[in-house]
Design a protein around this nucleic acid. Sequence first.
RNA 1: GCGCUCGUAGCUCAACGGACUAGAGCAUCUGACUUCGGAUCAGAGGGUUGGGGGUUCGAAUCCCUCCGAGCGCACCA
Length: 570
Amino acid sequence: MATLAEKLFDSLTPGFDRLEQGADPVLRRSDHADFQVNGVMGLAKRLGRPPRDVAQEIVDHVDFQGLVDSVEIAGPGFLNLTVSDEALISQLEEMGADEALGVSAAEKAQVVVVDYSAPNVAKEMHVGHLRSTVIGDSLCRILEFVGHQVLRRNHIGDWGTPFGMLIEHLVDLGEDNAVANLSVGDLDGFYREARGKFDADDTFKERSRSRVVLLQGGDEETLRLWRVLVAESIHYFDAVYEELGVGLRETDVVGESAYNDMLDDVVADLEAAGLLVDSDGALCVFPEGFVNRDGEPLPLIVRKSDEGYGYAATDLAAIRDRVSHLNADRILYVVGAPQSQHFEMCFAVATMAGWLNEHTQATHVAFGNVLGPDRKMFKTRDGGTVKLKGLLDEGTLRARSALEERGAEASDTDVIAHQLAMGAIKFADLSTDRQRDYVFDWDRMLAFEGDTGPYLQYAHARIRSIFRRADSLPSGGKITLTEPAERDLARQLVAFPEAIENSLETLSPSKLCTYLFTLAQQFTSFYEFCPVLKAPDEATKASRLELCELTASTLRTGLGLLGIEAPERM
RNA sequence: GCGCUCGUAGCUCAACGGACUAGAGCAUCUGACUUCGGAUCAGAGGGUUGGGGGUUCGAAUCCCUCCGAGCGCACCA
């Protein structure tokens, strides 16, 4: 269905086209009216005419067909549009009848590969994985919501030299013992012990090195041991995803090792394209525009001088595979900002090789670091990395005690505490612009006041509470907008599709967060001023119940797209 | 040194080249409880948008320059 903004845009177009074909009205939401048109000034300038005259001429030639109550020419040449209540109401009714709440499906459904989370085998997931996992998950949900086919890819670190020492450590412990060890979830302990022996014990170091050779050589027994490590780790990751409520499954895991067999082909392709240069024994591609410290061309090292492959080769193989076998139209990499140069180089090389082109695009969806309250990298008190699992558990504990303090209404405190905690953590993360570093602060995100996940969940729970007390449920009653608070709420409700569109365009769930917070705020204001169950008459009550229903579904749907649950009560 | 990202209220953040008051949230202060859930609402104070130039009818936003922060810059991912 068409959004209100689209309808207004369409009625404005003839007025602008008369004066200049294709001129953009630059229609925006406004504080001064419902919408404002900013395009007149630019157009007037191009025509060399006084802006207010142009504005008047446009107004004279536009038929809003009842969408607009008043058009006012303001300031240097703005058009302020006040939308008619009838238009707002019919928009709300369309929205209510639409499962997608007015969000139209993408014009062309694309195959979108979203690469996110990517923890390392035999290493604990830490805060660094939180943003990738949470942002990636939300983007997947939003993309699917508008009809794209999303392929989630968990590019786990399951290959490379550290596996020599890890496998040898596993052998030392004895397999059963090691598995028991790992399944407890103490992956860091396992890794640290292996590392410790590797640094301290020359024999162990030597064994590790030969083990790497065996692994790369495809030795069956070594591979079997490696698979044990990988399987145990994935099992552990799954538990974390489950707790976090993220849609990543074991079938989404396509780790680095999955590309081993394709690396030679990557080299062959690049060689055939004449891109490979031998530099100190390493096979490199030198994409234009990248220089090192000394101003010399910077290579992307495809094959190291020891003939081994590094992560650049794997990343290139992944692009090649995703384009040619998965038929991806788009590939998103939800990976930290520090890697941006690496991805720029990979994308440049992939473009040179012809894997990426105007039909298939790769985008690095970069995000900033997680900082502690001291604005430094978030670490534990003794300087260690913060384990993700511990963080999630702590959040749940904190949420539970907050619930108990307030005398929770719900009986299943454990479930609610968990939903609140995950909502708080995710919302805090998602609501900050991706690019920026973000400050992790329990007190703020779980304060349950202000711009937080729990505030949104609370707004939703309150609406559900009204329905529990109501003798009749919303049943498509006629909506009327008399109070200002009703009108403000209506205006915000119909803007939902714009919020989704905006999030998608910028690949920033934070836009959706802002929208939902404003919606929740406007709802609570409405709730304060407009009694629903004690409305002055039955018609008003029915109308307000409709507004409640629409708000509840919008909140539930919006939170769902962020990966946040909307409990019935709390 | 080069490159990328960024600098907005005491703190955490918005603002797609647009307006008469640069917005929210937290914190502070003032009101509102016989409450459809006060985890709330209404209101107040708080800003030369890091500094300086420029482009523009109009700049937090674009360009230049300086200052400051973080990250990256050849065989680790």
